[in-house]
């Protein structure tokens, strides 16, 4: 019958891991419990029998059948490190390309380095180039601006001239009309004046005529 305590004690005993307390219980059970003692006895017997197991000679067998060619030493061109080295070199080459690795030889000195931007000369050239471009673009803009201003001024002048011409012509026309009106008024006034003079004169003449006719003599003019 399965007894967890017995199982635990026997297996601990077989592993040589009995604690002092377990050992005490183990010995107690060996003395008191026949079934447990029998289990221990069996384990003991089997353990002894295993140690004394007869060493039977191994029959001749084909050991070569366990050896396969894939474990034989490969020639150097098939060694595993070659593809690995090849991959490592490829990775290194990619890194060199991507990081801008360069080799520079100046006056017999070789410099290895990564591309971290242009040197001073290149910077100066770049700055000069950018400045030239800036100047050219500025000049072009200025020229365009001046052309536009000149054109605008020309247009404004033409408009002003046109305006002046048209306005002075109108004024002169109005002046002439005023003058003609004034002259006409003047003439009208003159006519009225002369008419009044004539009337007055006529009346004087008439008065003089009447006077003379009363005397029975023809009227003689005093203007003679």
């Amino acid at each position: 019958m399965h007894n967890p305590e017995y199982e635990s004690l026997i297996t601990a005993w077989l592993d040589g891991q009995l604690s002092a307390e377990q050992r005490q219980r183990f010995e107690q059970l060996c003395l008191e419990d026949e079934a447990f003692a029998q289990q221990v006895e069996t384990a003991n017997q089997f353990s002894l029998a295993a140690e004394q197991f007869e060493k039977m000679p191994v029959p001749a067998w084909n050991k070569d059948s366990t050896w396969f060619a894939h474990h034989t030493k490969a020639p150097w061109w098939q060694l595993q490190w070659i593809p690995l080295a090849s991959m490592a070199m490829s990775v290194a080459a990619m890194v060199m390309v991507l990081s801008g690795f360069h080799v520079q030889v100046n006056d017999g000195q070789m410099t290895l380095g990564f591309d971290r931007g242009p040197d001073e000369k290149q910077i100066n050239q770049l700055v000069a180039k950018r400045l030239d471009e800036y100047k050219e673009s500025n000049q072009l803009l200025l020229t365009q601006y001046m052309d536009a201003v000149a054109k605008q001024q020309q247009e404004s002048g033409a408009q002003l001239t046109q305006y002046l011409l048209s306005s002075s012509r109108q004024e002169r026309r109005e002046d002439f009309a005023e003058l003609v009106k004034f002259i006409n008024q003047q003439r009208s006034d003159d006519q009225r004046f002369y008419a009044r003079q004539i009337n007055n004169l006529e009346q004087e003449i008439d008065a003089i005529g009447t006077t003379y006719s009363g005397l029975g003599r023809p009227l003689e003019t005093s203007h003679e």
């Binding site: 026997i10 297996t11 289990q39 069996t42 089997f46």
Partner: peptide, 16 residues
């Protein structure tokens, strides 16, 4: 594993 050994011991006991 312990259970298997324990139950095996019972059978071995009988056989022995």
């Amino acid at each position: 594993v312990k259970s298997r050994l324990y139950s095996a011991l019972s059978k071995l006991k009988l056989d022995l």
